[in-house]
């Protein structure tokens, strides 16, 4: 093998893959294009271009710096690539009281505002694509149960917020009896010293950013039919 042949071969073999599988797709996908609704199927006009709200940038940074991606993923795969769609609460809810079946797979708009999509390495913990929606549902359920048991003694100040559930998880992932099996590390260093009688102490800015980011993960909004491949197609109402 001559040096010339070697160099040419190396450049051609690596360069082809480098160009077509890495560099070109990278530059082709930099700009996000809005997806138009088709009136006949979506029953509305205009374009789909959702905006995310919450402390995305700061929260994503805290998420990255503390290695949450080692055990948590953020992708709901289509059914041809895995069963994430069917797991309760991961893709959305099968029977949402207001919207019916809200389940859908991840789309490219779900990662807006982040520098790096934390797809994740392993699923030791659950997928977080819809952790915000799950916490909202959990908070509603907790409040309803409490209201029923307390009756007239209930006041709105006793309300559990979805955020408080997340703060409690971050401070001590095993505080809830039903979560004793969790192996999630505590990030108690993102909280102040606990005062007497406090189960979850005051949070520091990092914890608040992280919770803001996690609460922004409600990736079950209705999408145009043209990009909805779910088994049970909800219409884009």
């Amino acid at each position: 093998m001559t040096l010339r042949f070697f160099t040419l071969g190396m450049t051609a073999s690596f360069g082809t893959a480098w160009l077509f599988a890495v560099v070109l797709p990278f530059f082709k996908t930099i700009e996000l294009k809005p997806v138009p609704y088709v009136e006949a199927v979506d029953e509305k006009t205009g374009v789909y271009f959702p905006k995310r709200t919450g402390q995305i940038t700061n929260g994503a940074k805290v998420y990255s710096q503390n290695g949450c991606y080692v055990c948590h993923t953020q992708v709901v795969r289509p059914t041809y690539a895995g069963n994430d769609f069917h797991r309760d609460g991961w893709a959305g809810f099968k029977a949402d009281p207001d919207r019916g079946d809200t389940r859908r797979e991840s789309n490219v708009f779900d990662y807006q505002g982040e520098e790096f999509a934390q797809i994740g390495l392993m699923r030791i913990g659950p997928d977080l694509s819809n952790v915000g929606s799950r916490m909202e549902k959990k908070a509603i359920a907790a409040n309803t149960a409490k209201k029923e048991s307390l009756g007239d003694a209930w006041s709105d100040s006793m309300k559990v917020t979805p955020e408080s559930l997340l703060f409690s998880h971050l401070y001590n992932p095993r505080s809830n009896v039903s979560m004793r099996w969790s192996t999630c590390p505590s990030v108690a260093f993102m909280f102040e010293e606990p005062k007497a009688g406090e189960s979850v102490p005051t949070s520091k800015p990092d914890a608040r950013a992280l919770v803001g980011y996690l609460m922004s993960m409600k990736k079950n909004d209705a999408v145009p039919a043209s990009m909805n491949y779910s088994a049970s197609k909800p219409t884009g109402k």
Partner: peptide
Amino acid sequence: LIFVIGGNPLMSAAVAAW
């Protein structure tokens, strides 16, 4: 690609996997 140019967050993740 990931740190200097910074494209679509998903393609950055794909480049990292590559």
